[in-house]
Design a protein around this nucleic acid. Structure first.
Lengths: 344, 344
DNA sequence: CCTTGGTTGGAGAACGTTCTACGACGAGGA
DNA sequence: TCCTCGTCGTAGAACGTTCTCCAACCAAGG
């Protein structure tokens, strides 16, 4: 057994010496490039195993690829992201690529710094989940390194896009609630990073979808939107605002599951039972929504599929596809126990 | 304005040419090393700004540091990790270091590969959260790059450790339940990765703490442990096993909040009310526990503090501290609505 | 025997940094 | 005037890869 670590790294030169060939030859085997005989390949492979050689990714990055995919997201508490990441991981399994995550928080400046850090680290591709920093920066980065943007409906020929049909998702919820006899259906939404150049953020598209659906059902006068943040606290504030109003809405559609949790709290504080007094629906169908004490009606966005698609598009791009592509994923409604017939 | 991206990277050579000095000089300014006059520093700084220069991290990695900290964890759904990561991020803010995350899943082999990938990418330091792969591998990696292990109570002079006083945490829960009149208190636990060389995994220490506490209260005969996995499904199976037994325990202590969610489901299925028929406590005090429809009594481990501590230790190590250090963090009990007096 | 062309292997120049040497300069002491 | 000693700046060799040439060899065709 060789020592388990500590010593000097085994380099391509060591392998070459051990196998009695040139470093170029080893490099060729490594990249399985043209111009290597079977015998030679075999010999080199054996030396690699014997020495437990692993290529130095940083050094690789100086010339070729780093075999690293960077994923940028704002925060980890949104369980929906975990679904996306599972999809990415799954698609990347078996390839030589490694996924590394950066959690930047919500600040545009921090996100920008992280994206740059990823570019500086010579990553081969970037997946940006609902980026909140300036659109020009994103397009700029995308000009340097293959990039897929998840979430925003703004497309560009600089990067690929994977989006959820959020307007459709909103319509699904409104339709479900209308079917249960609700008319006063309110929405909690969030303001994205204003002035960052994105006009098709998911929350904006969702809001539009909600308003259109309400109008479509002839309920435009009953539409109400409270705009806070997608967080427990944000949901609470929105819930208080909406549920304290007169006449009170009989149903609240929370733009994100985590916000729905805040609405839950608001309802409890106001002495309202769910779903007897107020129906509540979320969005994202995160793991929380399914939990036994929660049982939240929500919209599933097939996060895994989105992630896998993003990874696929990225690999295609890295392999050389030129044209930008946009893939849209259809959401579906998952009915649980927080929505029920409208109170008379 | 310079073009936003796309073109050739600006390198240290460009800056040197622009400022009319040597690349060595620029490098010195960059690292603020000794031997630079104020005038020169100023001039170089200006050129850097003018050209929007950013050092190429991959190239840096070939000689010096990459200013990258790698964090390895098994999966993102455990919200406890988010707390830890917030702590790490907070401590790293303002430094030149960037944190990158790797989510490896639970497989020992995948985790090992990820850890190696991080070492290959020449990261300056590693934070391993409850690593499930072989202890020798971890020690080996730690010999190459500064490493902090979070969670496992097995210490080593190769790496620093940050642990939660899990035995104490278990005692807190048992004490609380005993105070409410419970005697038949069961535990749901998890088997770590067997045969990986870790003898002090959190779940094992917690289990020991539970058994000792039960014994201390003279309740050793009532101790019951169901060992599954820390997941919703695992909790459900453990819950079914424990709650279907006769005599039925009056309280279940779930080793992790996520498992408690499964116990919730099991209880509901068996027609048992919480906390009237069965009290339920979790561990980790994740965001879910606090949510309005959940209100789970849990043990808070000060994840943020653990993360910040880990980051601090790591930076110290990178700066040259030789001796390994272990820091233990004390848990505290957060009582909510899922625990109540034992049924008569 | 000379060409041609395909196959196999290697030399060596990048890539963008860091960092060790070393040289030039000016001031101060003998 | 000559030495010594800081201070400031530069040359240039790493670091571990990739990849473009180029050379050697062999077989087949003329």
């Amino acid at each position: 057994m060789h020592p388990v670590g500590g010593g000097r790294r085994v380099t391509i030169t060591d392998v070459a010496r051990h196998a009695g060939v040139s470093t170029s030859a080893v490099s060729k085997v490594l990249r399985n490039a043209y111009g290597v005989s079977d015998a030679m390949r075999e010999r080199v492979r054996e030396s690699m195993d014997a020495l437990d050689y692993r290529p130095h990714a940083a050094a690789r990055g100086m010339r070729g690829r780093t075999y690293t995919i960077g994923v940028l997201l704002d925060n980890l508490r949104n369980a929906f992201f975990a679904d996306i990441l599972d999809g990415v991981t799954e698609r990347l399994r078996g390839t030589d690529y490694q996924m590394l995550l950066g959690a930047a928080g919500f600040g545009a400046e921090d996100q920008r710094r992280l994206a740059r850090a990823m570019v500086d680290r010579q990553m081969d591709g970037l997946i940006l989940i609902g980026p909140g920093f300036d659109r020009h920066e994103v397009v700029g980065a995308a000009a340097t390194v293959p990039t897929v943007v998840i979430g925003h409906h703004d497309t560009s020929d600089a990067h690929d896009s994977v989006v959820d049909a959020d307007a459709e998702g909103a319509a699904l919820v409104v339709g479900h609630l209308v079917g249960l006899g609700h008319r006063r259906i309110a929405l909690t939404s969030a303001h994205g990073n204003e002035g960052s150049g994105w006009t098709g953020t998911p929350e904006r598209v969702q809001r539009r979808g909600y308003l259109e659906a309400m109008t479509g059902h002839g309920l435009a006068p009953y539409a109400r939107v409270a705009t806070t943040a997608y967080s427990e606290e944000g949901g609470y504030r929105a819930g208080m605002e909406l549920l304290a109003a007169t006449p009170r809405p009989t149903a609240v559609f929370a733009g994100a599951d985590v916000a729905a949790m805040g609405v839950f709290r608001a309802a409890r504080e106001l002495g309202l039972r769910i779903p007897e007094d107020v129906s509540l629906a979320g969005y994202n169908n995160t793991a929380v929504a399914a939990m036994s004490p929660v049982q939240l009606t929500s919209v599933d966005q097939a996060g895994g599929l989105m992630g896998a698609t993003a990874a696929r598009l990225l690999l295609e791009r890295i392999e050389g596809r030129g044209r930008a592509v946009t893939v849209s994923v259809s959401p579906s409604l998952v009915v649980r126990r927080t929505t029920g017939p409208a109170p008379r």
